[in-house]
Simulated assay, not measured.
Amino acid sequence: MLRFAFPALLFLAACGGDGPRYAMDPAPLTDGAVKRLRVSTLEVRDVSLPAYAEDSQILLEGKGGALTPVKNAVWADEPVRSTTILLADRLGRASTATVAAEPWPLETPAQAAVHVRVSEMVARETGQFSLRGQFAVSSYDRVIPERIRRFDILVPLADTSPAGIARASGVALGELADTILAELAR
């Protein structure tokens, strides 16, 4: 049994990689004001990302639109998980609602849920980070009107380094959270 365990451990160690890992930096809250929402509990469903954005490698769009991996740079966490948790955290810190990512951890269901579908999440060599798609607000008990809204967020990249892309992605997700908050405050 042990003779099989050692090769398996070597394989897992080789897959882990020793390169640097980058976390999406959450953008700081700007005005410090907490928004009063029309719901007291809110579930953030797993964010739907394009296949290229689900990859662990950090990508950069080059000339001609090709997405290529940034050398020796991977995300610190799975992109779907990190974007979902970052949005849930931002929505919870900036609002009066109790917010959690799915699966909803409480016995009583949330009054509403946010579903985010990203159609584009890309760092461009031209110096812009683009986050586009739509979000939907569903309300199981019709506490608030259900709706679907589009978003198109552009954030300047300080540089195209992995750290610069990670910072810009966090800022873009912060802007998306603020857009969702404004919608839920109506």
Rank of each mutant, 00 (worst) to 15 (best):
T83L: 14
T83I: 05
T83V: 06
T83E: 07
T83M: 14
T83G: 02
T84L: 04
T84G: 04
T84V: 00
I85K: 09
I85W: 05
I85A: 11
L86G: 00
L86T: 10
L86F: 02
L86H: 01
L86M: 05
L86N: 08
L87F: 02
L87G: 04
A88E: 04
A88S: 06
A88M: 04
D89C: 00
D89S: 12
D89F: 04
D89T: 13
D89W: 10
D89E: 07
D89V: 00
R90L: 00
R90D: 12
L91Q: 03
L91V: 00
L91D: 06
L91E: 01
G92M: 12
G92P: 13
G92I: 05
G92E: 01
R93G: 01
R93E: 08
R93Q: 03
R93A: 11
R93K: 15
A94S: 14
A94T: 03
A94V: 02
A94C: 02
S95D: 06
S95F: 07
S95L: 04
S95A: 05
S95G: 02
S95K: 00
T96M: 03
T96Y: 07
T96A: 07
A97V: 07
A97S: 14
A97Y: 12
A97W: 10
A97R: 05
T98W: 11
T98I: 13
T98K: 12
V99K: 00
V99Q: 03
V99E: 05
V99A: 01
V99C: 03
A100T: 13
A100S: 15
A100C: 01
A101Y: 02
A101K: 09
E102N: 01
E102L: 03
E102F: 13
P103K: 03
P103E: 08
P103W: 04
W104H: 02
W104I: 11
W104K: 03
W104P: 04
W104T: 09
P105L: 02
P105C: 06
P105W: 08
L106F: 15
L106P: 01
L106W: 15
E107T: 13
T108Q: 14
T108S: 13
P109C: 11
P109R: 06
P109H: 01
P109N: 09
A110T: 03
A110M: 10
A110Q: 00
A110F: 08
A110L: 08
A110N: 05
A110S: 12
Q111W: 06
Q111T: 02
Q111H: 08
A112K: 10
A112P: 04
A112V: 01
A113R: 15
A113E: 14
V114K: 08
V114M: 02
V114R: 09
V114H: 02
V114Y: 06
V114S: 03
H115Q: 12
H115A: 13
H115L: 13
V116S: 03
V116L: 04
V116T: 15
V116D: 12
V116R: 11
V116F: 14
V116H: 11
R117N: 14
R117T: 15
R117W: 01
V118I: 15
V118S: 01
V118Y: 08
V118A: 10
V118E: 14
V118H: 10
S119Y: 00
E120A: 11
E120H: 12
E120L: 07
E120N: 08
E120D: 04
M121K: 14
M121C: 12
V122M: 10
V122F: 09
V122W: 09
